[in-house]
Design a protein around this nucleic acid. Structure first.
Lengths: 226, 226
DNA sequence: TGCATTATCGTCAGAATGACGAGAAAAAGG
DNA sequence: CCTTTTTCTCGTCATTCTGACGATAATGCA
């Protein structure tokens, strides 16, 4: 049997919220092709490695971990014949949500790693498109799942959760209506009994992520940009 | 540079509604491995071929076309190291919705092709899992998109559209409430002005698919099995 | 003490939903 | 030809959900 030969990589769209803004983890390439250009972190899948394992490994190499509060899912595959000058390379993109904590560390084949606000970057390969797809997926996921909590530390306030929505969607949300929605939607958040201390304003109750896989009813954006 | 070598295939989850039941297109394998076992249709990606083009080509080889009224989207990639005994094979799965019309024709490397009701098949490779993922995706897509119309011919009645939801979700829906929802949700369906003739009961108005990419508000299932 | 800030609770009108009644318009059958 | 059956379509009504926004609670800070 004869069939074409491919290389397979994983690329990561790692999102976090910093200072009320949605950020993505980018690396400056230390190898050809696209030397010194910014790109999504990623690398080749090893010979005896699962795709998800490869994504988790790359995530660990760049950030440290996707521990509790994080989330990792497959985003999609990209395989245009001319997307990589080295030859036929199919990449399986993964989407990760992380709390703000980690400071990125450049991997072995990267000159630098940094959080960058989402926006117009001229990324290497087809990474601009992969990033756009990841952001759109994230915006949609927040509507129907409790994954906004994946952007938060294990314990968080309703206000912190709301700021995730505001950052990812890029629109202001009424704090009173959001509070009602978050606390009454079954399985979204669970109270820990604790509260914040030392912050300005009235102390806020702390919550952890609930056990629902889907929000019912969902939290819908006002305007759909379909 | 050295890295592992892969083969890349596309596999198709082709769904349609026949006699009020959700059906999937399966082929009986004409080659090793898993000779004579039922599997999802698919094949190797050619040397100079886009992933989506490969999926469309395979769909054409098995069914004839995914013409107007149909829909094709990427479902996800599967790459466990031992998923294919021939070696390291990553498959990119695609999900297709088609109207009932076509009768399947066995491709060159298949002994047979047939529509089968979804349910417990012992499919080759990891195709049981891919099929389950495709069905779950379809159920979810009907909630938030107008893609139920992709299961219908270019002109269809509201009742036909409702039967798609009932088949895919496996639950009965009140015809009167569904009629109100379908006709008032912006961009879901557009009236053609024509009506059915010769059918029992009052003639039904015919509609075509609307131009919305997302349904707002969505059509939510009662029970979430997530 | 008074003020700014933030969290939380309540209220109210409008929209959406689920349950269901009832009429309209055709085929089918005596 | 007239009745029955079938299916489509439009209304009604109570309940729930949403968006807008007022009011109060509980803290830090001047």
């Amino acid at each position: 049997m004869s069939y074409p030969v491919f290389a397979v990589t994983v690329d990561l769209v790692v999102l976090t919220v910093r200072d009320g803004e949605l950020n993505v983890l980018l690396v400056q390439r230390g190898l050809e092709p696209h030397l010194n250009q910014w790109a999504l972190p990623g690398g080749f899948v090893h010979a005896d490695e699962d795709l998800t394992s490869a994504a988790r490994r790359e995530l660990g190499e760049e950030t440290g971990l996707d521990g509790p509060g994080g989330h990792l899912e497959q985003l999609g595959s990209y395989g245009d014949p001319d997307r990589d000058p080295r030859g036929r390379v199919v990449t399986v993109a993964y989407l990760a949500f992380l709390p703000d904590l980690p400071a990125p560390t450049a991997g072995t084949d990267a000159a630098a790693a940094a959080w960058k606000p989402i926006g117009a970057h001229g990324l290497a390969f087809d990474h601009d498109r992969i990033l756009a797809d990841g952001i759109e997926r994230a915006r949609s996921k927040l509507e129907y799942t409790p994954l906004a909590a994946a952007f938060c530390p294990p314990e968080f306030t309703i206000a912190a959760l709301r700021q995730v929505y505001e950052a990812v969607w890029g629109e202001k949300i009424d704090p009173r209506n959001f509070h009602r929605k978050a606390t009454t939607t079954p399985g979204f958040v669970e109270s820990t009994g604790r509260s914040t201390e030392g912050e300005p304003g009235r102390p806020a109750r702390l919550y952890r992520r609930g056990d629902a896989a889907l929000l019912n009813p969902p939290i819908l954006r006002r305007k759909l940009d379909g």
